[in-house]
C-alpha cells in the first residue's frame, strides 16, 4: 500500500484534489497546443495568420 504514487498523491485529499485540477489545466493547454500545431501545419498558407504579414507591410 505504500507505493510512492500512493504516498505522494492519493494519500492526502489536500494533495489529490489540487493534483486533479493541475493535471486537467495542463492537459487542456497541452492538448490545445498539439492539436493547434497539427491544424496550422495541415492548413498552412490558408489561414489569415499566414497571409496577415503581407498586408501589414503594405500599410506601412
Amino acid at each position: 500500500m505504500a507505493s510512492p504514487i500512493y504516498s505522494t498523491i492519493f494519500k492526502r485529499n489536500s494533495v489529490f484534489v489540487p493534483t486533479v485540477f493541475l493535471a486537467a489545466f495542463s492537459f487542456s493547454i497541452g492538448f490545445d497546443m498539439v492539436t493547434s500545431a497539427w491544424w496550422d501545419s495541415h492548413n498552412r498558407g490558408k489561414q489569415w495568420k499566414d497571409i496577415r504579414s503581407k498586408y501589414i507591410e503594405q500599410e506601412e
Binding site: W39, H42, N43, K46, Q47, W48, D50, I51
Partner: peptide
C-alpha cells in the same frame, strides 16, 4: 474547394 473536407479551413486569401 480548398475548404472542402472536415479538416480544411477557408482559404483566406481567396476570401479577401
Amino acid at each position: 474547394w480548398p475548404h472542402k473536407g472536415i479538416f480544411e479551413t477557408f482559404d483566406h486569401a481567396s476570401i479577401r
